[in-house]
Amino acid sequence: MKETVKPRGKPLSGEEMKQVCHVVARPQVKYAWAVGVAMSHFLAGLKQGKILGRTCVQCERILVPPRMFCERCYRTTDEWVELPGTGVIETFSISYIDTDANRIKEPIFVGVLAFDGAPPHSGIMHYFGEVSQDAIHIGMPVEPVWKPGGERVGAITDIKYFRPREGARPSSNSKRRKRG
């Protein structure tokens, strides 16, 4: 059979890469990202222990994270609403790697939750805690564990993590779609 790929390229091992001629450059950049109108309000809400969303009356969504515009209807969103802060796990992962791909012993529980009181898929990414690997599941009701008021600065990390909410009824979000 005809093979027309004639590959070129000199592979190097990690050691060889340090032995061949090379240059090392360290990036020296700092950023100050403008938080913007909606997110500023949201972060200020977190500092007060509140989860704030923004309504769009046209598509009937509550946008969390909030935006001043609805990207689907392409119109100004309508008003701020406070959500109860509880929700259900939409998806999760148990991570044995950190942000730089280093292996870690104690895994990080992370996932996306959908907030109660809002349509499906209205939610954010955050950590989960006080839950075991066997117990965590999609559809699990959760509630936020806040840092003490004095330690909150207006950041997503003002919530330490979300933990299972005792006595809550499983949400309809946990229902599986039938295949095919």
Binding site: M17, H22, V23, V24, R26, P27, Y31
Partner: peptide
Amino acid sequence: LGDMEVDHFLYT
């Protein structure tokens, strides 16, 4: 506030 999280670049 934030920065570039890359430690360094190694250019062969």
